[in-house]
Simulated scan of single mutants.
Amino acid sequence: MAGNTTDSLIGKVALVTGAARGLGVEISRDLAARGAHVIVGARDHRKAEDVAAELRERGGAASALKLDVTHEEDRRAAYASIDNAHGKLDILVNNAGILLDSPDGGTPAPRQPSEALPHVLRETFEVNFFAPIFLTQLLLPLLKRSDAPRVVNVSSIRGSLTHLSDPASPVYPVRALGYDSSKAALNAFTVLIAEELRGTPIKINAIHPGWLRTGMGGERATMSVEDGARTAVQYATLGEEGPTGGFFFLDERLPW
């Protein structure tokens, strides 16, 4: 389903958001190991520096970037920094995300959708939906300078309307309005911008990394971050024949 991928990323520049912990760190490690210069984006610049230093110690190329994806000034500073240092961007992984509806991904939301709190909904959408839209829009000129630009939107199976409405689905009982609907909206953005750019070298896909053992996923999760990074990296390194405008877990195309 995914088409061919590019093993060597030498000469490529990749920005990973939310890269100071969990899945973002592992995605950064994998991209750096393949030869990309990885820009570690995170709200806490010191933590981003720590991750970038680790990548360099492993023999990779990496730099840190203070990037709160919800702040316009940080997004614009990111553009200027990447433009000045590299003049282009080959890979953008919109990984930063939050879950506020429940303590972790394995716990049903204590409030039903009819009781969801306005501030939880607004804050969740700012991070999970508006931020990746505005960052992608802003960085698009840099992506267009790449020979093979790739954008990966880290979504979730909980953004699948098919799964949310299926009583047999494992995500059906959770009913976390903020998180689930923000990921469904991110999926819609993925479809719309991919169709706008279809016929260009840019490939944009949404991915479900799996239920991961992270602070967000919780201890009962079934997959490690190493496993979870596989899907993100697979679609960040798509070859020319790879898909665009899809929703995937590894080679499986997921229902919207």
Rank of each mutant, 00 (worst) to 15 (best):
A64H: 08
A64G: 06
L65Y: 05
L65R: 08
L67N: 07
D68M: 01
E72D: 11
E73D: 07
D74F: 03
D74I: 01
D74H: 10
D74Y: 05
D74Q: 02
D74M: 03
R75F: 11
A78E: 06
Y79A: 13
N84P: 06
K88N: 11
D90P: 04
D90C: 07
D90Q: 13
D90W: 14
I91S: 07
V93R: 03
N94T: 04
N94W: 12
N94H: 07
N94G: 05
N95R: 00
N95L: 00
G97L: 00
G97C: 01
L99S: 04
L99V: 01
S102W: 12
T107F: 06
T107L: 10
A109F: 05
P110C: 09
Q112V: 11
P113L: 05
P113D: 08
S114G: 13
E115A: 12
H119M: 03
H119Q: 05
V120H: 07
V120L: 06
L121P: 02
F125W: 14
F125N: 09
E126H: 06
E126G: 01
E126I: 02
N128K: 06
N128I: 10
N128Q: 08
P132C: 11
I133H: 15
T136A: 15
T136R: 15
Q137I: 08
Q137E: 13
L138D: 11
L139D: 13
L142W: 05
L143I: 10
R145N: 11
S146M: 08
D147Q: 15
A148N: 14
A148M: 11
N153E: 03
S155D: 02
S156K: 09
I157N: 08
R158S: 12
R158N: 10
S160Q: 07
S160I: 02
H163R: 09
L164H: 00
S165M: 02
